Simulated assay, not measured.
Amino acid sequence: MQALINLMEQSQVLAAVIGLVILMMLEQAHPFFDFFKGSIKEKGKHLLANMALGLTNALIISVFFVGTWLWASNWAYEHQFGLLNWLQLSGLPAWGHTVGAILLMDLWMYLWHVINHKVPFLWRFHRVHHADAKMDVTTASRFHTGEIILSSALRIGIILLIGLQLWELLLYETLMFAVVQFHHADLALPEKVDQALRAVIVTPAMHKVHHSRWQPETDSNYSSLFSFWDRIGKTFRLHNPLKTLRIGLDEFDSEQDRKVKGLFTMPFRKADDQNSSK
């Protein structure tokens, strides 16, 4: 099992890197907003700032949380604890356990995302992600370390309650992050293609609305992997024409908010501080 987990962790990193490279190339070839037109330097600075957060978070998760998740997973399995393990005792097949794990983790991610928008303390951290006015594939990695620590700690309880096996969590995260990279990418997809895809997964046209500066749109389209949670939760929303959408947060629009230091300190600064620094 440990060999499988190590292989899946390596595959997860490889998939993320490949996804980043491919989507950056597609953004260059078929951009939707083309935020960095004629400015490779600005695109490079944007990439470095976002990836500084992403790499920091990946390191923290690897050092402090993966081992704890493994313990929680093993404990749940050995004690047959958690919803999926109880259902398996009642005849749920192994494939049902895995499908259930993916669906329940994605439901949790939807609910956790909603909570991050509704609870002011959590929003202070989550707004670092939303403050990116030039959203592209690198924005998928732009989450404040405080949010990642809180999310990772809560995941210990989620693993126990659901009865997740660690390899199932890694499988879900690999699938989920691939879709998260895709729907953050600055891509110009044909409307019919986007429409067909968003019947199942979250797409760029759908997720761009979530990054709108207008709060009713910001508070919509919370899904990470599967799009149907928003339809079930009645939080699904589109914006037409999409080209008129304005991405970012008005109160975090200064040069300071585009630098690595500014991203790390953003949750601890008041919005008024940003306006005075413009």
Rank of each mutant, 00 (worst) to 15 (best):
H210N: 06
W229N: 03
Q274F: 15
L104C: 07
N74D: 15
N50I: 01
H126A: 03
L171H: 03
V200L: 10
Q181F: 00
R155I: 13
G44K: 03
A178L: 10
L47Y: 08
D257G: 15
L160G: 04
M176H: 12
V63L: 14
L238P: 05
T265P: 07
V209I: 09
V17Q: 03
M1I: 06
G248Y: 05
V114A: 11
V21H: 13
V17M: 11
K243Y: 05
K118N: 07
I149L: 11
L107Y: 02
Q2P: 06
R198C: 06
A178G: 05
F226T: 10
R155E: 09
G19D: 07
D273P: 00
A101M: 02
P190H: 00
L4M: 13
L48V: 06
M176N: 14
I162L: 08
H144P: 15
I5Q: 15
T265Y: 14
L175H: 10
H30P: 08
E147P: 07
R237M: 10
H239Q: 09
K278I: 10
A133G: 08
N116M: 08
A133L: 11
N50G: 09
G38I: 04
L20H: 06
A199C: 04
V180N: 10
R246T: 12
V193M: 10
L83F: 15
T68A: 11
V13G: 02
H79A: 15
L4V: 09
M176V: 09
A133N: 14
F81C: 03
L107Q: 05
D230L: 11
L107V: 05
F252I: 06
Q195N: 14
M135V: 13
P120K: 02
K261P: 00
W86N: 04
A153C: 13
P93H: 06
A178M: 08
A196M: 10
R124T: 06
I201S: 07
V137H: 02
S212E: 02
F236M: 15
Y172F: 12
